[in-house]
Simulated scan of single mutants.
Amino acid sequence: MTPDELRSAQKLTMANPERLRLLARLLTHPAGRCTAEDLVLRAAPEDPRPDGPGAGDLPRGVAAARAVAEVEEHLQALVAVGLVAVVGPVPADAALYRVSSRGIARFGSAALAAPRYPGEPTLDERDHDALLGRLVDTLAIAFAANAGAGTVDRLVRECYSALHRQVGSSEQVPALTAWLATDRLAAMAEVTHGSPRDVLFVCVHNTGRSQIAAAVTRRLAGDRIRVRTAGTRPVAEPDTMTETVLARRGLDGLIEFPRELTDDIVRTSGVIVTMGCGDACPVFPGRRYLDWPLDDPAGRPIEEVERIVDDITARVRALVAEIDAVDEPADDVAAVEAMAADGTFGVEQQRGWLPRLARRPWTVVTTALGARAQRKAR
């Protein structure tokens, strides 16, 4: 398919207003990626038909299942034209979806302008104030437990101003603002900062090395690791050669628009990987900092970019394997503490938790058991 044919196919695909609504919901999802079922559950609260159009008198379970199937069909149509990407290995039960950078740039503002529920007016895509107002309303609902409407409004305006300076006057800025503000609010709302499953990749321009690492991590780890990228001096456009190489590997939809490094995303990350910009990255206690000495792919021939992608892929595989091996799920630790408290280390319990702990570092077990001794000492 030629670029012109692809753009025509994208326009035809997005002629369906329901797909614009889905794109907007996906764009403002706090996790940055979700399943079709989650999108159905996150239908706008003002929507009088949360089970989807035409539910009628069908039992709720049947209507919900049909709505999920319809959303899944729409999402697959968006994936086919590169506006949405599948994150991670596709599971048997439900795929994880995220808006691609191409989807944000080409249809994000139209998605924000589309009615969120029947009866709401369609906004003018050129009216950025109106689009930002609707975005503030949407995000204030999504993050009501963590941020007030005033906080959301200030952050949205801050992101809009920063992106306007970065990319200039552009119709893409409201959509990019939705993506950036949603992610920054999600970072601020994290209950536990510094989780080893929150990884941040940082380079200078946020167009090459960090984007490659993020795309590979998203494909390998799926929902197991939250990935963010940033640049100390971000530019307005992703690197075209990097996109070309990633496209050959089916990873181009998993990159994101270049963004500025801010304290909030560093604070919420447990692993910060720098690539030629370590001195410019804020340092917070309790985080793990890695520096990967990598060549910048910008301006290099495609063969060298392929080599850089291979190098980063090998490093990411090792990092993901290390995180999976070391990071102990909270339920396993809680189980150990509970059994230590009542002394129940019977055979039946061992069948459930001991084999899992045998594959984990013993420090996890001693930490859990030691917590009981520390409480007694106090």
Rank of each mutant, 00 (worst) to 15 (best):
residue 166 Q to L: 14
residue 317 R to M: 11
residue 219 R to W: 04
residue 229 T to P: 03
residue 213 A to C: 02
residue 205 H to Q: 14
residue 211 Q to L: 01
residue 12 L to C: 09
residue 76 Q to R: 15
residue 313 T to E: 15
residue 98 R to E: 13
residue 69 A to R: 11
residue 283 V to A: 11
residue 337 E to H: 10
residue 201 F to M: 07
residue 296 D to I: 01
residue 189 A to F: 08
residue 270 G to C: 10
residue 210 S to M: 02
residue 145 A to P: 07
residue 85 A to F: 00
residue 160 Y to P: 05
residue 37 E to V: 10
residue 211 Q to W: 02
residue 294 L to H: 08
residue 327 D to S: 10
residue 367 T to V: 00
residue 174 P to S: 04
residue 10 Q to G: 00
residue 203 C to Y: 11
residue 195 S to E: 07
residue 218 R to A: 05
residue 187 A to R: 08
residue 367 T to D: 15
residue 318 A to R: 07
residue 121 P to L: 09
residue 258 P to E: 04
residue 42 R to W: 14
residue 256 E to K: 06
residue 69 A to M: 10
residue 253 G to E: 00
residue 125 E to K: 13
residue 212 I to K: 02
residue 271 V to N: 06
residue 81 V to I: 02
residue 64 A to V: 14
residue 329 P to T: 03
residue 112 L to W: 00
residue 202 V to W: 04
residue 282 P to R: 04
residue 123 L to M: 04
residue 166 Q to R: 11
residue 73 E to V: 00
residue 122 T to S: 09
residue 346 G to D: 15
residue 153 D to W: 09
residue 25 R to N: 15
residue 214 A to R: 07
residue 66 R to N: 12
residue 138 T to K: 00
residue 42 R to D: 13
residue 170 S to N: 03
residue 339 M to G: 03
residue 179 W to C: 07
residue 33 R to A: 04
residue 355 P to R: 05
residue 333 V to D: 14
residue 374 Q to S: 13
residue 64 A to F: 15
residue 166 Q to V: 12
residue 205 H to D: 09
residue 189 A to I: 01
residue 348 E to L: 12
residue 47 D to F: 10
residue 69 A to D: 12
residue 292 W to P: 00
residue 199 V to D: 01
residue 325 A to H: 05
residue 339 M to T: 06
residue 23 L to H: 01
residue 264 D to T: 09
residue 307 R to F: 04
residue 122 T to V: 12
residue 204 V to N: 06
residue 340 A to P: 01
residue 10 Q to W: 02
residue 369 L to F: 01
residue 8 S to F: 00
residue 357 L to Q: 11
residue 212 I to S: 05
residue 375 R to N: 10
residue 8 S to P: 01
residue 333 V to K: 14
residue 60 R to T: 09
residue 327 D to P: 06
residue 118 P to M: 06
residue 251 L to S: 08
residue 150 G to D: 15
residue 193 H to P: 00
residue 233 R to E: 15
residue 324 D to C: 10
residue 131 L to C: 06
residue 134 R to D: 10
residue 140 A to E: 09
residue 215 A to K: 00
residue 235 V to M: 06
residue 350 Q to T: 10
residue 49 R to G: 13
residue 375 R to A: 15
residue 372 R to H: 11
residue 361 P to V: 05
residue 194 G to L: 01
residue 1 M to H: 14
residue 355 P to A: 06
residue 267 R to A: 14
residue 262 T to A: 09
residue 2 T to R: 12
residue 336 V to P: 05
residue 258 P to W: 07
residue 131 L to Q: 02
residue 226 R to T: 12
